[in-house]
Design a protein around this nucleic acid. Structure first.
Lengths: 242, 242
DNA sequence: TTCTCAACTTTGTCAGACATAATGTTTACA
DNA sequence: TGTAAACATTATGTCTGACAAAGTTGAGAA
């Protein structure tokens, strides 16, 4: 992904260890050495230039790539923050999704079994703390919903709590990426902000079932929720093909 | 992913159409206008600078990201080639997977519901032709297996035929990426080539069930196949943690 | 014809400058 | 004193120009 022999100068204190001389590895080493966690801020670019010994554009190319992979988020004035895990042994793969009305349906079709399996695992494996968090998130979601405010962030946090309880970060990653992609396509052109509105009340009994460890009911509610979203998506896609 | 107001100059011939002024869109437009196909070469960076009206580093950041997503390949002296589809309506998302023994289990855990849903959809939706292909692939797989040869390519083709029958390319894409990632981790360090060997005979009745449209039996065989692979994976991962 | 070598092309890297947006701080006013 | 506007600071976004490095191409010699 990067070149082997970029740097012409080096701080001359650590050339003994055989580290590959490319920006990604240097960045990962810095993150590990510094003990940076998800949510922490990376040093500003100019400091990275100084400390890593690469040019600014070279470092920026890597950071931009990481941003597109959802590893960091970058903002003018605010800096670069870690928003995903990135360690020495992280592999990166990419999917392509066609940007069409039909893709909306396809994405939900893929999301469906993943979300159901996530709920199944969460019901079975969640710790007491995780069940408590799920309960709190559900209460928050219902409260926001009944107040008539924008419930989508709360909805996202609720599902995230369930994904976390599976103990398998891949579920959250894949579903998150699918949803991100979905909203990229959905929100801008079609402008309908309230997809899945009617499914929100179902989240309370879903949370209860997960907390109680009732796998059958948890799966059932998840299916009903996703199917409602699927139905609405189908409707929108059909309306698009007129 | 990109900024809105980058270019200070413009060729002044096409500012009427409301195209978003960012590098990815400009590049995609160029690819479509030029009719570039997979395998073709993109214009050199300096020509892109001239034609798109962005700075070289800005364009490079996008091309580098595309390279990491497998859309283009770049080589000194040789230029940039399209190696994956990228059109106006192609979105790309990336996943990061940790390179650990435990990841092997996690990947199978995610693959499981996807593969089951894919079989379910294929059983329901496959055309006559697609059922014929599935049958042929199953016969091929069994033949290769009984001949004692390397059955993995045939296995891959068989599952691909099922994914194709779902009518949703996302299944194939995601599962393929997961498997690719899996083998990246699995083959090299652990060197066990025959994961899932015992599950091959089950593929014949699975194919029959799909072709007959028997959803219940198709799902059942899929579960048995994946669970065998999961069990073997678990065994390997545990052996690794000694 | 085939091999070698030089010239060319193209990407990789670095440096410096300014633009832009978010944040932090101070000051002025009620 | 509390709040809000104005300013200064910080950090990323972009552009330009220059050189390095590696692959490609073509001309000339054996």
């Amino acid at each position: 992904m990067a070149e082997r022999t970029p740097a012409t100068k080096r701080t001359s204190q650590e050339q003994a260890s055989e580290e590959p001389r490319d920006v990604p590895h240097a960045l990962i080493k810095l993150i590990e050495d510094e003990g940076l966690q998800v949510g922490d801020r990376l040093p500003p670019e100019l400091e990275l230039v100084r400390r890593l010994g690469f040019g600014r554009s070279t470092i920026r190319e890597t950071l931009k790539t990481w941003e597109s992979m959802g590893v960091v988020s970058r903002n003018k004035g605010a800096g670069t923050r870690l928003i995903g895990e990135m360690s020495r042994n992280t592999l990166r793969v990419a999917l392509t999704i066609k940007h069409e009305a039909e893709s909306l349906i396809r994405m939900q079709q893929v999301r469906r079994p993943l979300e159901i399996e996530a709920v199944r695992l969460a019901t079975r494996l969640a710790t007491t703390d995780q069940r408590r968090v799920i309960n709190a998130r559900a209460a928050e979601l219902i409260a926001v919903y009944e107040a008539g405010e924008d419930w989508r962030p709360a909805d996202h946090r609720f599902h995230k709590a369930i994904h976390a309880a599976t103990g398998n970060p891949l579920f959250e990653q894949i579903i998150d990426q699918i949803l991100k992609c979905f909203h990229d396509i959905y929100e801008t052109p079609f402008g309908k902000p309230h997809l899945g509105q009617d499914s929100i009340p179902l989240h309370r009994p879903l949370a209860d079932a997960v907390i109680a460890g009732d796998e059958g009911r948890a799966v059932e509610f998840t299916e009903r929720i996703i199917d409602m979203v699927c139905a609405e998506t189908l409707q929108i896609a059909e309306a698009c093909n007129d």
